Simulated assay, not measured.
Amino acid sequence: MTDLTHVRREYLKAGLRRKDLPNDPMALFELWMTQAAEANLSDPTAMVVATVDANGQPWQRIVLLKRFDEQGFIFFTNLGSRKAAQLADNSHISLLFPWHMLERQVAVSGIAEPLSTNDVLSYFVNRPKDSQIAAWVSKQSSPISARGILEAKFLEMKQKFANGEVPLPSFWGGYRVKAASIEFWQGGANRLHDRFLYQRSAVTEPWQIERLAP
């Protein structure tokens, strides 16, 4: 057994107080996202996306957040992927933003709703061309025998679309996560972390705010 009990550090960068919280959690999320980007964190938009399969087994993977507003959090993916198949059966989803260097986490839970084709297209056309081509190449989450298959397919598709625009694949889309709860976690000294949970049962209701014990 590898003993990791000695791997510890104190969290002393900042605190979070109730009087400083806005009524709308998206205002605080925008501030924290801006600060994460300004701190030059590696991949500040990276989030852990958790879904559940038909047997109740949770699955997690890191995905990049691409847009957010008062309506929710948006990400894009192959609609043949494991996460998309699981969301088709169970639209409940959880997101986690692990901003370790700032001693912060944001955890979101809610429902994932598929984006319209127009919303997906408006993002897809602004991707780098090689990323557009890569969307055509990979049957995400399906087994492959060798990396060479992907590389050969990429070169084939690159030739195919060399002289024109890359069309939107029918199997490529995105989701808007509509939050039912958003928790902000700020590390504190002696493991007395600051945690605040925003919750609401309907989008027409105001957010309720609670401080949680660490």
Rank of each mutant, 00 (worst) to 15 (best):
L168W: 07
W207N: 11
Q159C: 07
M101A: 15
I149K: 11
I182E: 05
A84P: 08
T51P: 02
D3S: 14
D89I: 03
Y198F: 09
S145V: 14
I93C: 00
L4I: 05
W185L: 06
A179W: 00
L4H: 09
I133F: 02
V120A: 04
N40F: 11
H92T: 10
I182C: 11
N126W: 12
Y11P: 01
T2W: 06
N78H: 04
P169F: 08
R191M: 08
T34M: 11
L41A: 04
S42W: 13
E103H: 01
W59N: 15
N90M: 07
S138W: 00
A88S: 14
Q60I: 02
P128V: 08
A189C: 05
K160D: 05
A36C: 01
V125T: 14
D69H: 02
T2K: 08
A146T: 06
F184C: 02
H193M: 08
E205D: 15
R195H: 01
V166Q: 04
S201G: 11
M47L: 06
W32L: 07
L115R: 13
R67F: 02
Q186E: 03
N55V: 09
L41P: 02
L121G: 03
A54N: 12
M157K: 14
E10W: 00
R18Q: 05
N90T: 08
F73M: 06
T204E: 12
E103L: 00
K158T: 14
E210A: 13
D194I: 00
S142K: 15
N190P: 04
E183I: 02
D43H: 13
I149T: 13
S42V: 15
S181I: 03
I149R: 06
H193P: 04
A189Y: 11
P98A: 10
T34C: 12
R9W: 12
E38W: 00
Y11E: 10
M157R: 05
P169S: 10
D194L: 04
S138F: 10
L21M: 08
S145D: 15
A50Y: 01
D24C: 12
Y175G: 06
T34W: 10
L150T: 09
R211L: 12
Q186Y: 01
K13Y: 03
S91Y: 02
P214E: 11
